[in-house]
Structures are given as C-alpha cells and as structure tokens.
C-alpha cells in the first residue's frame, strides 16, 4: 500500500515535503502506528512519538487523511477505506497549528501552557481528614467524561479558534480540564477558577464548531464542558 508522510528535518531541510513509501501489510488491516513502524524499518530517519500503543498515553496524535487521531488505535480501514486495495494512499501529517520540530513531532509547549493556566490540580485548603474526603457516587459521576483526557491535543489542534488565538483562547482540552476541577465536589476554589476564565478570550472564543468533539479519541465532549462553564459564569454574574 502507499503511504505519504510529511517530512521535515530542521538540520537538512529548508522546507517540509511529502515523502512516498510503499509498505507491505500482507493485506492486514493494521493500525496506523504499525504502518509507521514498518516505514521506520525502511527509513529509520522518520521521527514520531509513541509509547503505550493502546490509546491511553496520548503520544501519537497526528493528522491522518485529514483527520486528527491517535495512530495506535486508528485502523487503516477506518481512516482510509480502500487503502489496502490500492485505491488511495494513507496520508500522514503532524497535528496542525503547532510548530513542527521534526517530521510528525510537534512542539506541544503552547498546548501545555494553556493546560497549566486552568490550575489543573485539586485545590482544597481545609485540613485533610484522616481518611479520604467522602464523595457520593453521584458526585463522582460528574467527573466521568472529564478526567479521562490523555492530553493528546487532537481536539485543540483541530479547533479554528485555537489556531487563530493559541495564546489567548485556552482551547478545548484545557477548558475540559478546567471544568473537571470545577465539577469536583472536593475542590474549594470554584470562585477563583471562574474569575480566571471570565474574560473575552479564555473561554468565550469558543464558537461551538464542535471539531473538538468529533476528533476526541476518548469520546470526550469539550464543547459540552465549555457550555457548563459558560452557564456557571452567567449564573455567577446574576
């Protein structure tokens, strides 16, 4: 099958380019990460990140045939139907909107900075009890769909508002985590957290385009979380 991969090595290339490879998967419907490993056997200079190879560490977010996702849990038949029959090529690019370090490796600094801005940690200044802080199953259920984020950046790098304002708009991933702590019954910093989001950019640049929801490999819904924060801010304003 044919694979076309974005290449760029800052030491030797003035411009990025697409390189074509021919890979034999023996007809198997492999995951894209397995295909990359086969390419790397032919050409060890290809650089990409990977770790868990099972969709839980968030290392290998990339753009495959136009869609962001994790290479390790994306099967060829899903991302590029017909590729095994030679009807089209698998086309792999780095996540859009972030600076490229080399090949498929992007510089995630901006993404992590936005994450850090939401104070992504539990704050509770009351003295801790000798056991755990109690939380009912219903309270705990509010964290489902939030805490599972793996910081892969698939969502934020598919969000037009993040492309235009990566410094000011926090982006879907950071906002989802912002809400994760707003929703935690054990956290006591709700007011301060909301104040930090209450400006025209941090949150309100979200235009509800929902790109983030459609690409999240963990099936999370940042748009909904953003909506919840918006409601909390409005409620507070009254």
């Amino acid at each position: 099958m044919k694979v076309s991969i974005y290449r760029y090595n800052p030491e030797t290339d003035r411009e990025p380019y697409m390189q074509e490879y021919e890979v034999d998967t023996q007809g198997k419907d492999l995951m894209v990460l397995d295909v990359l490993a086969l390419v790397k056997e032919q050409d060890p200079t290809l650089a990409y990140r990977r770790s868990c190879r099972e969709g839980v560490c968030g290392s290998d977010g990339m753009n495959m045939n136009g869609k962001n996702g994790l290479a390790c849990v994306t099967a060829l038949s899903i991302v590029a139907p017909g590729v095994l029959e030679g009807k089209k090529a698998l086309v792999i690019r780095p996540l859009p909107g972030l600076p490229v370090i080399r090949d498929l490796v992007v510089d995630m600094t901006m993404f992590y900075n936005q994450y850090e801005k939401v104070q992504p940690y539990l704050i509770n200044d009351t003295p801790a009890p000798a056991i755990e802080r109690l939380q009912s199953p219903e309270e705990r259920e509010k964290l489902d769909g939030l805490y599972e984020c793996i910081l892969c950046a698939c969502c934020s790098t598919s969000c037009p508002s993040f492309w235009w304002n990566p410094e000011k708009f926090l982006g879907p991933a950071a906002l989802l985590q912002g809400y994760r702590f707003l929703a935690d019954s054990r956290d006591t910093a709700r007011d301060d957290r909301l104040s930090r989001l209450d400006d025209p950019f941090s949150l309100f640049r979200c235009r509800g385009i929902m790109n983030c929801v459609s690409v999240c490999p963990k099936g999370l819904n940042p748009t909904r979380a953003i909506g919840h924060i918006r409601d909390m801010l409005l409620e507070r304003a009254i």
């Binding site: 509770n124 056991i131 755990e132 802080r133 939380q135 009912s136 199953p137 705990r140 964290l143 935690d184």
Partner: peptide, 20 residues
Amino acid sequence: AVFELDHMGLPFSRTEEGRI
C-alpha cells in the same frame, strides 16, 4: 499513601458511603 492520593484529587470510584 492512598488517602493522600485522594487528597491530591485522584478520582477514585465510590461506594454508597462515599468511600473509595
């Protein structure tokens, strides 16, 4: 050490009593 993890925010699943 486990209670500390809860205090750090680890979202453990819960029992009806609100415990881990």
